[in-house]
Computed example of a mutant assay.
Amino acid sequence: MRRIWSRLLGRTSEWESWHKGLAGERRVGRELERLHPFGWRVLHGIPTPTGGDIDHLLIGPGGVFVVNAKYHDGKSVWLGDHAAKVNHGRPQPYANISRSEARRVREVLERYCEFPVHVEPVLVFVGVTDLTKAPTAHEVRAYKERDIASLAPLSGKLCPEQVEAVYTVARHKRVWLNA
C-alpha cells in the first residue's frame, strides 16, 4: 500500500530505492565477473556485523578493491574529495564511506594474511549520463559501470599465490562477521 501511495504522490518508496540499488549492484557484478580471465577474483554481497554488506570485493594482480555500486539512472554525478553530488543536489558522503570501508577491509584481511594487503576504494556509478571527478580527488577511484574493465590490466600488487590467499580468507563469512 505504501508503494502505491508513494507512486501516486510521485515519491520514491524505500522498496523502489532498494530494488534500484540491487539492480545496480547486479550490473556492476556482471562487469566485474568479466575480469576473471585476467586473474581477478570477485566476491559479492559480503555481510558485515552492522547488518550491511560490502557490495563487491575485487581481488587480483592489481590489489584488492572494495567496490560500491551507486545507481543513479539518467543523472550526472560530480565526485569530490569527501562527497558526491547527484544532479547538483545535496552532498552524499559516498567517498568518505568508501574510504572507511576500504580501511576496515584492509584491517580484516591483514589479520589473516601473512603479508600487507593494499585495499583501494572504488565507486561505480550505474546508469549515469556524466561522471566528473574533482582534480584533487585521488583516494577513491570512480567509474561508470562499463569503465570498470579498465582495472583488468592493473598488476604489480599481488602475485597469483597472494591473490588466492586473500581470496581464500575473504570467502569465509566468519572472517567478516567477527570483524
Rank of each mutant, 00 (worst) to 15 (best):
R104D: 03
V108M: 09
N68Q: 14
L79M: 14
V67Y: 02
E107Q: 15
H36W: 13
H72D: 06
G80S: 09
G89D: 12
S100N: 08
I59R: 10
L58G: 07
G60D: 07
K85G: 00
G89P: 10
D55T: 11
W78Q: 10
K70L: 03
Y71I: 13
R99E: 14
K70C: 05
A69T: 07
L58H: 10
Y71G: 13
L57R: 06
V77W: 07
N87M: 08
R99A: 03
V86T: 06
D55V: 04
P91N: 02
V86R: 08
T48R: 10
T48D: 00
S76A: 05
G74Q: 02
R103V: 13
G60I: 06
F65R: 14
P93Y: 00
H36M: 15
R41S: 13
P116G: 07
E110L: 05
T48W: 05
P49R: 13
Y71Q: 15
V108Y: 08
L79N: 03
D81A: 06
V64Y: 05
P93S: 02
G63N: 03
E110W: 05
D73V: 12
G62R: 08
A84T: 13
V67S: 10
R99W: 04
H82P: 09
D55A: 02
N96G: 00
K75L: 06
V67G: 11
R41T: 08
D55C: 05
A102W: 02
C113P: 07
P93M: 03
D55I: 06
Y94T: 03
W40R: 15
L109V: 01
E114D: 14
C113M: 09
G80M: 12
R111P: 01
E114G: 14
G80Q: 04
T48V: 05
G51T: 13
G80C: 01
E114I: 10
V67E: 06
E110P: 12
V86K: 05
Y94K: 09
